[in-house]
Design a protein around this nucleic acid. Sequence first.
DNA 1: CCCCATCAACTTGTATACTAGCACCGCAGA
DNA 2: TCTGCGGTGCTAGTATACAAGTTGATGGGG
Lengths: 235, 235
Amino acid sequence: MENIISSKGLMISEKEKSESIKEYLYRVIRTNIIYGYLSPGDVISENYLAEVFHVSRTPIREATAHLVNDELLEVYPQKGTYVSHIDMKRVKEATILRQLLEVEACQRSCEEITEERVYQLEANLNAQQFYYGQNKLIEVMELDNDFHKLIFESVSLLRIWNAIQTISYDSERVRYLKLSNHFRWEETLKEHWEIAEGIKQRDKKLVSELMAKHVGKLYEDAEKVREKYKEWFAG
Amino acid sequence: MENIISSKGLMISEKEKSESIKEYLYRVIRTNIIYGYLSPGDVISENYLAEVFHVSRTPIREATAHLVNDELLEVYPQKGTYVSHIDMKRVKEATILRQLLEVEACQRSCEEITEERVYQLEANLNAQQFYYGQNKLIEVMELDNDFHKLIFESVSLLRIWNAIQTISYDSERVRYLKLSNHFRWEETLKEHWEIAEGIKQRDKKLVSELMAKHVGKLYEDAEKVREKYKEWFAG
DNA sequence: CCCCATCAACTTGTATACTAGCACCGCAGA
DNA sequence: TCTGCGGTGCTAGTATACAAGTTGATGGGG
């Protein structure tokens, strides 16, 4: 992936041909927030974004409306648009949601998953290790997401995966802060390997415990991250 | 609630002062789809909607973009915008999601709920009975939703409730078809009363079983509804 | 009669112009 | 120096104009 850091300090990736301008803008702005190129409290007016991306305000507005829905942006009419702060209540709800659903998904995958997909899980973890060694943290994050997504995909629950995403963006920001501080990473990868191995062995009970623990730890980690980056958090 | 059926056959409710035009449009168009004033396959061009609501295309576009995200509308550039068909796969995923989360919520409510909220649950069910007697089905539907929402509210999991909603709109359409055919309604209300009573008695085990059964039945009912309204369904 | 080309009437996508409202800053007066 | 008032420049909300593309009907030629 080739990302360009613009003069405005934004990371601007290439537009895919399959996506419309508004989808492109949504994706790019969202990743800039999650990966910290836009910090909580930052003001980003529509005119400013329109200038940076060389498009009119119309697609910008459609993208920002989506991001408001995701609670990553807050729009105050006639005042401005701000990057939201991370809300621990949101992280908590996302954790509860994920614990229940990821456990369900990996239990089902113990019964339904194919050898091919097990291989994909293992390849994914190897890739994570590789990119982490190269300090390519964004790639590591995306692979981590893909790992979990692969499990949902293996049991045909992608819409549920997407529903999880829409309330997990604050957790994503926490995970990236955690990752960029190299906090507990080796341990986290080990948890992934254990889960993959458990699925391979189709041990539902073991996998459930591992996954519940794995997801649950994010909230604990979030508390620690909050101490260091308290200005990123609300309340 | 005063709803006006426009000359175009749309049910147009009053705009609340607290909501913006785009939020109003989103709400009205969504309810028109769920309550069958707009049927799967219907074409609704942006110009058409702009004319009906006496607004420009800009807020219309923002509302339709949201509805595309909800998979209630499908937009084909330069061709048209269509009301989507009900997808049983979506209903299935929503059922799985709800079973897990509603069980979790009502278990928590057994520990946390206040007497005040228990009273609200009971009042809600009485109101459902009343409006059903008056054949005010839309009010019944909204009260049914409020019943479940109250439970999530009682345990501070409203974001999870909202996440459920975003993948449950097909289920909503099924529920309204079911309701307007007076299919299994008395039984459904009885299930609600049992759940409310179980929460009041704070019997976690009983409530979990009842709720899982209650939510699970929607998918079975959907199969039956599909036989009668097969043109409403995809595939 | 059938087929193909052309054109007109739509559609959504994008850009731009205008409106309304808030906030800040500087100036004037006490 | 402090206070109040008003202008100015910003914001997002909305309306409109234009661009690009699809569809379907119509009419002429084989």
